[in-house]
């Protein structure tokens, strides 16, 4: 960005004696800002044009993004959520794996005749 600004500045200075630099700087800046703004709008489930609404920037700043995937694509944090979830699952208290003597498989899980004192 800064390299670009520098090169543009030199070119404009050659052509126009120093003026016009600001406008040329603004073009990529705005492109960048609007692109990022559009991405943030998509996080919130809105179109990128919403960022032109006055004070919408505050919503962009403080609003919570949608957790589920929406029409604009997958939640970029979903991978992190999935990783955390699998971490919790692996440390959760799965008592089925603890100290259980061999059991007879009973199919549906419902009581069958003969299961009375099943061990």
């Amino acid at each position: 960005m800064y390299v670009y600004a520098f090169l543009v500045g030199i070119f404009v200075a050659v052509v126009n004696g120093g003026d016009g630099l600001m406008y040329l700087m603004l073009v990529p800046s705005y492109w960048f800002l609007w692109a990022q703004g559009a991405k943030r709008c998509h996080d919130l489930g809105h179109s990128g044009w919403w960022q032109l609404i006055p004070f919408y920037g505050l919503w962009m700043l403080f609003g919570n993004g949608e957790i589920e995937n929406n029409e604009y694509g997958e939640n970029p944090k979903m991978e992190r959520y999935r990783r955390l979830q699998s971490q919790y699952q692996s440390t959760s208290f799965n008592l089925n794996k603890q100290q259980v003597p061999p059991q007879k498989e009973s199919g549906t899980g419902e009581y069958q005749s003969g299961d009375l004192y099943n061990r």
Partner: peptide, 16 residues
């Protein structure tokens, strides 16, 4: 629609 014994741990799958 599942009905099963509610014991868990070592008593899992025991009925009475």
């Amino acid at each position: 629609d599942v009905v099963q014994s509610a014991w868990i741990g070592n008593l899992q799958r025991s009925w009475v």
